[in-house]
Design a protein around this nucleic acid. Structure first.
Lengths: 344, 344
DNA sequence: TTGAAAGCGCTAACAT
DNA sequence: ATGTTAGCGCTTTCAA
């Protein structure tokens, strides 16, 4: 029976290098107050023993976890089939790779009151959190906030709180841009497939759509909500067609839903863009690949994620950080919105 | 100046409930040896103080981190635009939600010898790891294995190791199924857009393609590699067309590449499926949505992820676990592979 | 520049 | 059933 060799500790390294634990600790933490010879011996010992510091022990005394939580309060599969999610993670991971922070992905019930999510956030395993895909009824962050955990929202929260900055895209303006473009194409009966009303992005895009329509003196009654999924987009489009057969333009609150709507329009014999102009939101790959290619609003997901990390790092450093960062959007015109008779 | 109130500890709860720390610990850890009255007082104190155990302290003594690492040795953005990644995370997250384990997403350079990845894995912050998107030159797991960290590969590693189980899909058979189907459609000049040769999935699918072609007595020289990205798929298809203008069938090692190849074929004036039959691999949403809808091989990503979690949990429990779990595939026939003259 | 010693918050013998 | 005690591995004063 071999004695199960456990991982080497600071003590082992100290013995091997013939110095004290404190000196080893200084070397590991790049403290300059170590002689060259001692440092050399310690480094050699670390190498020889394959020593890696135990983070639990370190965390216990430094009260730092060296990791941040990315909280996605979604229990269903939607978030995984949504390119928004991938872009967000990518942006966060990239921004984090410049630091020593690890990323802990925390998922759970949106309305988790004092369950897993809030327990985890208060457990001290992370130094801060980025909360995304926030729903109106979420409460888990309250206890975490009370515990003093630095947090930033990726996507404006329903009730912005002092000390909890957020980064968002100007959804209202983006939606207005989309509607403006549709109006400019000569469309007069413009519907929308809106996002879920318990999410700010959904509500804001609806607001922008409505505002611009009213400014143009056009009716703003053709609204159906979807949950940002393809299935919802297809169903919503069918419903709009049934209730408003005269529609000639649609602003869809996400590309995923828009691409599905395109298909539904096709099945109903409506030509896009000749009969109906369609504008999406996000500018994902799906927009480029759609047939016809989808006119859409740029959603700067990766820059937003980077900003969120930047804000959180600032919070962790005790810096003064802005209460909100809002990124601008722009319109990308492709074929789905320009009727043949307007093309030159 | 308010004294910054730090998080309540076991000690605080013990004082509040007028019991010892040990009793509080027992209540927290559901130890039955506590009287009802004591338990009640402790629970009340926990509630009153908003106590949450400090996981670093607990980890230090239990030597458990209550989390597992999902290692994705990819530094680039590819992994995020790949639906394979989303499915994998989804499967793992779902399987993990039944446990108390958290999921730490660890990304890094594929060839990271003794860098971040291996340091992290040896740091004791996780109880085990699931390694996915494994490349031939990866080495980071060696030191982790030496340190005794339970690990499972999601996707067969190049050199299977004792004690490190893997779960994989039968890529060779899947590819063979695809080729068999193409042959049955009367195709005789069948090319392939293969995956990267430094990944097992890429190599295995190429093997299956080759094996089946040889069995059918057909040439197996039309091969171009791609890195599973859409751009690579488009470029590879163009190259195949240039070098083998007589091709009438293509097996593409991923749906992402296949959909891009479809577009390239269209641009080159080849009709799919009339001139060229195309079969992909993965059966992602993109396959359903493609025009024409893509015939493909089912890649049971989510079940694989669940299996991986199951194996890892077994390892953590010290159970005997199989060295490998291989899931089977099947063919899903859609329009991209059946020429008009074969349809009825 | 270095070492000794205290203690982070918790669990787990051991004692009662 | 409950309390006492001894660490887990590390950082960090404080002395030397």
């Amino acid at each position: 029976m071999n004695k199960r060799r456990s991982a080497p500790t600071l003590e082992d390294v100290a013995a091997e290098a013939d110095v004290s634990r404190a000196t080893v600790s200084r070397v590991v933490n790049a403290d300059p107050r170590v002689s060259a010879s001692a440092r050399e011996r310690v480094l050699a010992a670390i190498e020889a023993l394959g020593y890696a510091p135990n983070r639990a022990a370190r965390s216990l005394v430094t009260r730092q976890a060296d990791s941040i939580a990315v909280v996605i309060p979604e229990s269903d599969a939607r978030v995984f089939s949504d390119p928004f999610f991938a872009g967000t993670l990518h942006g966060i991971a990239t921004a984090l790779s410049r630091t020593d922070l690890q990323m802990v992905l925390v998922m759970g019930q949106p309305d988790d009151g004092d369950g897993r999510l809030s327990k985890y956030l208060r457990g001290g395993h992370t130094d801060g959190a980025i909360i995304t895909s926030h729903h109106r009824r979420d409460e888990f962050w309250r206890t975490a906030q009370a515990a003093g955990l630095p947090m930033v929202f990726l996507g404006r929260p329903f009730a912005p709180m002092a000390g909890m900055p957020y980064v968002d895209v100007d959804n209202v303006h983006g939606a207005a841009l989309a509607v403006k473009h549709l109006v400019e194409q000569g469309r007069t009966r413009i519907a929308t497939i809106a996002g879920p009303s318990d999410m700010v992005a959904g509500a804001d895009r609806l607001t922008g759509w409505r505002r611009e329509l009213r400014a143009a003196g056009l009716p703003d009654d053709a609204v159906v909500h979807g949950d940002f999924s393809a299935a919802a987009g297809a169903a919503a489009m069918a419903e709009l067609l049934a209730n408003h057969p005269d529609l000639d333009g649609v602003f869809v609150a996400s590309d995923v839903m828009a691409v599905a709507a395109l298909e539904t329009l096709r099945r109903h014999g409506r030509s896009v863009p000749d009969d109906v102009s369609v504008v999406g939101f996000d500018n994902t790959d799906a927009a480029v690949e759609a047939t016809p290619a989808l006119t859409t609003i740029v959603n700067p997901i990766v820059p937003m994620a980077r900003q969120a990390v930047g804000l959180l790092l600032g919070l962790l450093d005790g810096d003064q950080v802005p209460a909100a960062v809002t990124l601008s959007t722009e319109l990308v015109v492709r074929s789905s919105s320009i009727p043949a008779d307007r093309q030159h």
